[in-house]
């Protein structure tokens, strides 16, 4: 197996608070990796450091063999890391299809003049983006809504659209931040199946933050547990479920 993402001693401090403390992650190609922990454990902050949103105070991030910490989000995205957001961040005024097409923008090979002069390359690029976006909407079960403005989507669909948009960037690694939050049991089951298909059919490695234990234990093969920024356990779902420190963290945290 080849290593896709490796962080060493990844640390970030906000003033006096050490939100993430020496986090070591190691994700292989094709993993479906779970990152869990109580509220405020630092999971989202790890994502922010991976994707270049926050600059780590310390430590390194290697992605696909390249050192990426401190790079800006645009460059990280180019390297093939994409994500969704815990507090959904769609482009509300664009249509569902256009939201997904925006993900495909970074691989466009045309320049502004092509579009202003409407060259063949422009039309070819539009077709490419539309096809790709439409396929991904189909994959996520959103094709009927393609023409709607994103702000008109119900909550569960908004989360799916974020995933479709992230997939449109052709990522090697997809980071999902609580994709099932606010969904009911039926929707969660569908989502779990979709996440598995993303990995199996689209061959995209997945890093998943999720509070729903059933979902995480059901689909992840490896799990890492954070508490107060520190890793307290790593292993298979079975190992995690029987780890006394994890049980303590979750029961103690209420």
């Amino acid at each position: 197996m080849t290593k896709l993402l490796e962080t060493k001693l990844l640390t970030i401090r906000f003033g006096g608070l050490c939100a993430v403390d020496c986090c070591d992650l190691c994700i292989d190609q094709g993993d479906l990796y779970g990152l869990i922990g109580p509220n405020g454990a630092g999971k989202t902050t790890v994502f922010n450091m991976l994707t270049g949103v926050y600059l780590p105070s310390d430590g390194t991030v290697h992605f696909d063999g390249k050192l990426v910490n401190g790079r800006n989000p645009v460059k990280v995205a180019r390297l093939g890391m994409s994500r969704t957001f815990q507090n959904i961040r769609l482009f509300d005024e664009l249509s569902v299809l256009e939201n997904a097409m925006t993900g495909a923008h970074q691989h466009s090979r045309i320049n502004l003049l092509d579009s202003l002069l409407r060259t063949k390359r422009h039309y070819r690029e539009e077709d490419r983006q539309r096809d790709k976006a439409y396929r991904l909407l189909e994959f996520m079960g959103l094709e009927d809504r393609a023409g709607l403005p994103a702000k008109a989507l119900p909550y569960g669909h908004r989360r799916r659209l974020e995933i479709a948009r992230a997939l449109a960037t052709d990522p090697k690694l997809l980071c999902l931040d609580e994709p099932a939050a606010g969904m009911n049991t039926g929707e969660k089951a569908e989502l779990a199946a979709l996440i598995r298909r993303i990995r199996d059919e689209l061959k995209v490695t997945v890093l998943l933050i999720e509070h729903d234990m059933k979902l995480v234990m059901g689909i992840c093969e490896k799990i890492q547990v954070l508490e107060y920024g520190k890793t307290i356990a790593k292993g298979t779902p079975v190992e995690i479920q029987s780890d006394p420190r994890v049980i303590e963290a979750y029961l103690g945290g209420g």
Binding site: P73, V74, A77, E93, L94, Q106, I110, T169
Partner: peptide, 21 residues
């Protein structure tokens, strides 16, 4: 065009736009 959509994406949510490359 793809540039216009990208510009609107920046307006709507710059951080998300950047994370999408």
């Amino acid at each position: 065009s793809t540039f216009g959509r990208a510009m609107i994406a920046i307006r709507e949510n710059e951080l998300a736009a950047e994370t999408m490359g």
